[in-house]
Structures are given as structure tokens and as C-alpha cells.
């Protein structure tokens, strides 16, 4: 039976189709999850994709973090369910308390949309185990609120514990603290990043196929772990 990876759709989600395609390219079965449901449909992992859930009202990700499906995701994450948040999904995971810090307006206020080089800083998370530490990947970044901030002691702890997963290389697009593009939870099962690996899985539409590595990594992680 193939691995089933849930992809959540909120009102205003944009990248659920690309995320589902990336899941399929990696060899898993994408399972559509609906924001208003209290059911993860027994998936093996969850992707919270990008977009503008609830129109970014209040704060990006704030309303979505309280959606019924997110209560299930938070409960699942507590039991080790691998969760990947991309862009707005990263913002949602921070608002839900699954990841530390917050994402704020880009330093120059511009919506930045470009291909961005990232360095993999931690190749031991559920979503990066197929990479090697120090490897560089090229994926699109597209956001207006991608500037990662956290309290100084939180930043120190993230660095000390190796919980910075991706760092911007060749220019910080938004003024993120310490060039941080993505972070992980204490147990390495939850990962969030602002750039879009799901847009870099096919040379027809993306700058590389290196984004696929996150999705194939979680398959490897799940295959190597005893069933929950």
C-alpha cells in the first residue's frame, strides 16, 4: 500500500494542487484534507500548503491555525506525525504553536518572487533526511511576509539545537533573522519553510527538481520507521 500524504485546503489556499503533484511525483498518494473537517483520514504525513488562507485576515495564518483540521494536525504532531508547512503553511504552523517564531512583513515591504538558493543546514529531519548537510537547492520563493523573527533566546536555542533547517544563500530576500528560511520542531518531525519546494519538482515549470527531495525524504523516513 502506498504512503498517503494529506494536503490541506483552506479558503484561500493556492498551492494545494502543486503540493499534491509533488507528493505524487515522489511516489506517494496525495489525500485532499478540508479545513473544516475534524478528520485526517489516517494519512501518514501532512503538508500545509501556501496561499492566503482566510485572506491573511488578522495575521497571516492566524485564523487558519484555529481551523478544525488544524486541531487534528496539532494532536497528530504531538504523536510524531510528520508535518510540512510551506509559505502560508509555515505561517500557520507558527501561529498554531508547532514551530517557534513568527513571519513578518518583508524588510523592504515588497512582494518578492524569485528563484532562491537555499542551504540545507539539517539533513536529519523527517522532511530533509534525503539531503546531505550543506547541500544547496534552488527553489522559488514568493511572499510578502516571510521575514522570520523570534526572541533572541529562541534564536540562540534554534542555532544551538540545529533546528535551522534551511538558510538563504546568495542574498536574503526578506530580512529574515540569521538568513533563516526554514526551521524544525524539537523532534525534527515538523518542518516549516517560506520558499516553495513543491514548485521545483519538474523542469517544465520550476527552476530545478530539487524540491522533490523534501517529499521523497518523508517517504524514506516513514519507510524506515515502525508503523505508528
Amino acid at each position: 500500500m502506498s504512503t498517503r500524504i494529506g494536503v490541506i485546503t483552506f479558503p484561500g489556499t493556492l498551492d494545494d494542487v502543486d503540493a499534491s503533484r509533488a507528493v505524487r511525483y515522489a511516489g506517494a498518494e496525495p489525500v485532499a484534507l478540508w479545513h473544516g473537517d475534524h478528520d485526517l483520514l489516517a494519512v501518514d504525513a501532512v503538508v500545509v500548503p501556501g496561499g492566503f488562507s482566510y485572506g491573511d485576515y488578522l495575521r497571516a495564518g492566524a485564523i487558519a491555525s484555529l481551523a478544525p483540521i488544524m486541531r487534528e494536525v496539532v494532536e497528530g504532531a504531538a504523536k510524531g506525525l510528520p508535518v510540512l508547512g510551506i509559505c502560508n503553511g509555515f505561517q500557520i504552523l507558527c501561529e498554531a504553536g508547532l514551530l517557534p517564531g513568527a513571519l513578518t512583513r518583508n524588510e523592504k515591504l515588497h512582494f518578492v518572487c524569485r528563484d532562491q538558493k537555499l542551504r540545507v543546514e539539517n539533513a536529519e529531519t523527517a522532511w530533509t533526511s534525503g539531503f546531505t548537510r550543506g547541500e544547496e537547492i534552488l527553489v522559488p520563493v514568493k511572499n510578502a511576509e516571510g521575514r522570520f523573527v523570534a526572541a533572541p533566546d529562541t534564536l540562540t536555542a534554534l542555532e544551538a539545537e540545529g533546528r535551522v533547517v534551511f538558510r538563504y544563500v546568495g542574498g536574503n530576500p526578506n530580512g529574515s533573522a540569521a538568513d533563516i528560511a526554514g526551521v524544525t520542531s524539537e523532534n525534527g518531525r515538523v518542518v516549516g519553510l517560506m520558499p516553495h519546494p513543491e514548485h521545483a519538482v519538474d523542469l517544465l515549470t520550476g527552476p530545478s527538481e530539487q524540491g522533490l527531495g523534501l517529499f521523497s525524504s518523508v517517504l524514506g523516513t516513514l519507510a524506515g520507521a515502525p508503523a505508528a
Partner: peptide
């Protein structure tokens, strides 16, 4: 819990 984000 909702109106403000205590991180920022």
C-alpha cells in the same frame, strides 16, 4: 491567544 501574537 488570538488578537495579538505574543512573539511579535
Amino acid at each position: 491567544d488570538l488578537l495579538a501574537n505574543p512573539v511579535i
